[in-house]
Amino acid sequence: MSGAVAELSFKDRVLEILSHVCDPEIPCVSVVDLGIVREVRGRTLVITPTYSGCPATIAIEQDIRTALDRAGLPDVKIEIGLSPPWTTDWISEEGRAKLHAYGIAPPSRSAVQCPRCGSEHTEEISRFGSTPCKALHRCLDCAEPFDRFKCH
């Protein structure tokens, strides 16, 4: 087996394992969906925080470590990379769909859509919500209050 193929399968294996590691604050999405997992370089895994002060960063690193240990990959090095900075564009399509199904409006540059009834007739209640990455909105048609993942 060639080195390149071995490298690819190792990376795929790590990503497969991490696709089951949930974000501790938004457990409907994995760290891969959110774009927190940036790259697998050799035996090193690079992850990036969403916000500088995201209190979940340490918990995420520990959860990833535990998952890798359990999968028999205790020698993978975990590095924190800041550059280029994380943006909501790193959230995958699958991640967006999962957020919507969970009742959180995914980040979008256009109108904010109510995750319950789909109406775009919504307003912001508070720019700062339950976690640093979310704002609080309200649907003006069905009256549902909901979290919106901030565009960042």
Binding site: P49, S52, S83, P85, T87
Partner: peptide, 10 residues
């Protein structure tokens, strides 16, 4: 600059 680029959006 890596820290700055991250912080400026916040």
């Amino acid at each position: 600059s890596a820290i700055g680029a991250k912080a400026v959006k916040e």
